[in-house]
Amino acid sequence: MPQTLFISDLHLDRERPQILALFERFLHEQAREADALYILGDLFEYWIGDDDDAPHLGGVAAALRSLTEAGVPVYFAHGNRDFLLGEDFAARTGMRLLAEETVVDLYGRPALLMHGDNLCLDDHEYMAFRDMVRDGTWQQAFLARPLASRRAEAEAMRAKSRENGRMKSPEITDVSPRAVEDALRRHGVDLLIHGHTHRPAIHVLTVDSRQCQRVVLADWYETGGMLRVTPEGMKLETVG
């Protein structure tokens, strides 16, 4: 049966080898049966540049390359942790990079895809940080630094992000309903698929008298999660 798979928020890191192994097994097994695989951001815990020589990245790149060489297209949308992933790594793996907001055809139904962090308008502190690190001048200066310096900065950012996450209410870190409605309206679709919030669910909402759906993908902290879309419908499923 035709099927398209969606995953996000794996946060792959050498400190969680079981999730690295689970992802590689997923690529060698379930993903081989898909028409396409979409990775909607935060594939990695952090990304400090395509020249990163961390040992665990080689296995991930090889597994992705094996999948794309087997004929399964893999699409990647940048997340808030791996927004620096570039064309060099994409070429190494065979992945195709997506724009921040991309509309695709899912068996006759248009769907808007994104990571989802740009929908969290009520988290003013994060949105200011996002504007800073998405600036081309900031990125150029960061990537010009030695690897060790970049890695130390990324670790510091990760620690701060964890601390901030514990202090903020769930309402602040969730998506803004207004941003969701604006995105659906802007692209003229009735289906939005995103990650980022780590709150997997299929939400039903009404926008301009149209019934719409917003699908939130699961993270891969304890186990894996994916969205399977077929011509008959869609379902959130566990991986592993």
Rank of each mutant, 00 (worst) to 15 (best):
R150N: 05
D122H: 08
A148S: 10
A144E: 08
F89K: 10
A31V: 09
N80M: 00
E125R: 14
L184C: 13
A111N: 02
I202V: 15
D122P: 03
R25L: 12
F23E: 12
G58H: 09
D174H: 06
V104F: 06
M226H: 04
L20G: 07
L43M: 15
E237S: 12
T223R: 15
V104P: 10
D219G: 06
G225N: 01
A70D: 14
V60Y: 04
G165P: 02
T4S: 00
L98H: 11
L191H: 05
W138G: 08
I7V: 15
K235H: 11
P231C: 06
L40V: 09
A34K: 03
L191A: 03
R32N: 02
E163V: 11
M127I: 04
T238Y: 10
V175M: 13
R214A: 02
T197S: 10
H187W: 09
R150L: 11
P55S: 09
R150D: 05
Y107M: 01
V133L: 03
R65T: 10
I172S: 06
E222M: 05
T68R: 05
Y75Q: 06
Q3D: 05
T173N: 09
M95F: 05
F76P: 07
T230N: 04
R185I: 03
D219A: 01
H115F: 00
I202W: 10
V239D: 08
L192N: 13
M95S: 11
H198R: 11
V133C: 07
A34L: 00
D131A: 14
P177L: 09
L12W: 10
I48S: 07
Q211C: 12
A36G: 03
E171P: 02
L143M: 14
E163L: 14
D82P: 13
Q30P: 03
H78C: 06
T230W: 01
E87G: 07
A156I: 00
